[in-house]
Lab assay of single mutants.
Amino acid sequence: MEVRTIKVFTTVDNINLHTQVVDMSMTYGQQFGPTYLDGADVTKIKPHNSHEGKTFYVLPNDDTLRVEAFEYYHTTDPSFLGRYMSALNHTKKWKYPQVNGLTSIKWADNNCYLATALLTLQQIELKFNPPALQDAYYRARAGEAANFCALILAYCNKTVGELGDVRETMSYLFQHANLDSCKRVLNVVCKTCGQQQTTLKGVEAVMYMGTLSYEQFKKGVQIPCTCGKQATKYLVQQESPFVMMSAPPAQYELKHGTFTCASEYTGNYQCGHYKHITSKETLYCIDGALLTKSSEYKGPITDVFYKENSYTTTIK
């Protein structure tokens, strides 16, 4: 009895394709271990004539594949690729409408935090270190965002349907971005203890939790000093293409032309909904596939993004 075979390709990165001759009487799992086709788990399936010449994702289970996976995804987590594939199996079914010149995501599976993050990423200057993220990001900007969303979920250790947080998501993504040249110098002034300067680099240099107003941050924000008295913390120097200011959701007025974009969060910790506000020729609110415009805006804002380049204080 002759062994019926077909020729397929296996890959971990969709760049390096490895030619395989597979036995049609055995499952993919018996031949390769966990195997995925377009995100779908085909591990328990036997090869079919229609699979001839198709590319299958496999887990990096030998040295060659491990090197290829690390170079593309910059992670050695053995569960990463499987999590990416199972997320992709959902995100490829989502709709990605162009809204006001940006790629958004039609609401499904509690994905409003991903839509808000995706919209924000198209408006701030950011370059990702893992080629996987950078490639998928370019495709997302062009309207094909399924891979990018699935990668975000995998890097953030999230599953489809789980509630997510924009600030946490951005923080994970910033860790995989090139923020080497970003720098922030802060000064804390206390009447009792004097003053202390701190220099922050990388992710810490672009994120701040405690106030939404970048102007206020430049002037000074009140913080408790270690001595128990009130101290003032203010920005001395900022070198970065953008800054992200966050605070627990509270009524906040966004003035046209003073910011790049913002995240609105309605609801409580267990259950809520994100919308995205962007400042173009007027203010726009993007909620999944829905767009509304207004000249002014007041609502429960939790993150505001500002364009920056270089700032030095005039406070002496």
Rank of each mutant, 00 (worst) to 15 (best):
G194F: 00
M207D: 00
L88Q: 06
Y155C: 04
I277E: 08
K275W: 05
F9I: 06
Y252H: 10
A177F: 00
L118R: 01
K275Y: 02
C271T: 02
Y73L: 03
D38Q: 10
D109P: 09
Y297A: 02
V304Q: 06
S294C: 14
N100F: 07
E296L: 09
L81K: 09
G164P: 04
T278M: 12
L102G: 06
H90M: 10
R167Y: 00
T27C: 12
K293S: 12
L173F: 08
L114C: 08
A142E: 13
G53T: 10
T199R: 07
T120W: 01
D109S: 04
H18W: 11
T198Y: 15
Q30A: 09
G267E: 15
N100T: 07
T278H: 08
T282H: 10
F217L: 15
D180L: 06
N157Q: 06
N61F: 14
S246L: 01
D77G: 06
K298T: 12
M85L: 14
S279W: 04
A117E: 05
I315P: 15
V160A: 07
V185N: 04
S79R: 12
A154F: 01
M209A: 15
E2I: 08
E125V: 07
M24S: 11
Y311P: 13
P300Y: 14
P47C: 05
A69K: 05
L163D: 07
A205T: 01
L173D: 03
L114R: 06
Y113I: 00
K92Y: 09
E296R: 08
T266L: 07
G288C: 01
T226Y: 10
G82R: 14
A154P: 01
K93L: 14
T266E: 12
A69M: 15
H51D: 12
F148K: 00
L212N: 04
F56L: 11
P60Q: 11
C156V: 08
H256P: 14
T120G: 06
L114N: 02
N49V: 12
Q134S: 09
V8Y: 06
V185S: 02
F259K: 03
P224V: 14
I6P: 06
Q251M: 15
I315G: 15
V221N: 01
R4G: 13
L235F: 02
Y28S: 08
T103A: 07
A150V: 03
T91W: 01
I45Y: 14
H48Y: 07
Y265T: 03
P47K: 03
T76Q: 14
T159I: 09
